[in-house]
Design a protein around this nucleic acid. Structure first.
Lengths: 242, 242
DNA sequence: TTTGATAGTGTAATTATGACACGAAGTTAA
DNA sequence: TTAACTTCGTGTCATAATTACACTATCAAA
């Protein structure tokens, strides 16, 4: 039946990249609650006739207008006190949860091309906006904990699979890719070694086109080469790591 | 309140190692159901006043008498049809789930020293027993899918952290460790290269003691050296990979 | 034309990996 | 007691991957 499950929600950690830092999409719950910060991850209860992945996609679309993106489960979070029933009563009602129910949440992270998604307001969130991950230190509920877990999953995943391209536009420079990897891995990577490695992987193709309008030497643009990536994967190659 | 949550369960993939193959602890539900095999992962509904990790530990203890072991979350599984309400009505009742409720499960995997745990029967399971992972092809509900996901998590994890020792007795031989890694990674590893790598890691210590009672040249015994491992970890070393 | 900013490039030393074979040390059975 | 069997334990060499490191080129703006 198409009804809300009062015990299970999904929360989405939507990562973006502003060419400088890794960012995350947050919603502003409008008013300070007694026990917590205003900023929260977009999330909502699931319906009983959808699976978890579908629920995450739906929430992403409803709350941020985002469709068809890279989405991966982080895990389930279920501390009995993860939501404070007193302080967050109003909030719980606004998402149609029963204020007395215990809510377990399944967290997802997703990677989007930041420019594609101008955050929009919804009935649930007064406003939504991008915040640099490294400048956040608290969020509502247990969402900061979820954010850290998502960041860690992303870090591990990107060491092993070339998913970073989901955060960049179709055409990008190797410097941008470089900074992206540094942001996610939280450590400096040698420029020349990075470029050598990327080029040896063989999954980026240089375009016959340069950056325009920059006040310095323009960089060659590259694209992620899906065909090459897939043919490598099919042939058992599985080391796309950094 | 200490009551069952009808919508959320935990299921545990308990891995063991019989010195030949990776095994998993399964319970036998006693009778064939209309739609599925008898063998299932140990699992049960959670209580509303425990967190998910606690629930997994509790279930492990109740269903298999296992305490204080390595435990890691695999993820949440929530397909609306993961449990067939008609065929499994009896089973649902036996674990006190409401037959009409939709149950989402949070899966964990754990690593135990097989010899420490003689599987026992419980009120939920007629019998419990170890089965080689590689010889299984179906399980009740979506448990085979969960098993595969757990195996994959374990594979990824062991590439990066020395958790394999949880599957071995205190004293073990390098050949046993070697076979363990081959079982988990599902591929042959060169003996000499493996031994070189393990020894260079510096987290096993040779004992002044040999294997006894084997009908061939006895092997030196080793132990996992927790202190060395921790001091390496603290100093930022993080490549325990294979 | 100078300044400032980023792009783009190569080498050499070190370390890690992968392939490969045989004598040693026990037990068992003839 | 000897022969057969099984697993243990070891080293080298070729190749590949990683690390550390510095200067010139190209563009825009002042």
């Amino acid at each position: 039946m198409h009804e809300l499950n009062p015990n299970v929600s999904v929360d989405c950690v939507i990562f973006g990249f502003d060419f400088e830092k890794l960012t995350v999409l947050l919603i502003d719950r409008g008013q300070e609650t007694k026990n917590g910060p205003r900023l929260a991850l977009p999330g909502n209860l699931i319906y009983n006739d959808e699976n978890l992945d579908q629920a995450a996609s739906r929430v992403l679309d409803e709350l941020a207008g985002i469709k068809n993106i890279y989405l991966e489960q982080v895990g389930a979070f279920g501390d009995p006190n993860r939501i404070c029933k007193d302080a967050d009563r109003e909030w719980l009602q606004s998402i149609r949860a029963e204020p007395e129910a215990r809510v377990i949440t399944v967290a997802y992270y997703s990677l989007v091309k930041m420019s594609d998604y101008a955050p929009h307001a919804s009935s649930f969130a007064k406003t939504a906006g991008w915040a640099p991950v490294s400048e956040l230190f608290e969020l509502a509920f247990d969402h900061y904990e979820i954010l850290l877990a998502a960041k860690e999953k992303l870090r591990q995943k990107i060491k092993v699979q070339p998913i970073g391209f989901n955060l960049l536009p179709e055409k990008f420079t190797l410097s941008q890719l470089h900074k992206l990897y540094e942001s996610i891995l939280d450590k400096p990577l040698d420029k020349r070694n990075f470029r050598r490695k990327v080029q040896k992987l063989g999954i980026v193709t240089a375009l016959k086109e340069k950056q325009r309008g920059v006040p310095h030497k323009p960089s060659l643009l590259y694209k992620f080469d899906v065909e090459k990536y897939e043919s490598l994967s099919e042939n058992g190659f599985d080391n796309f790591g950094f």
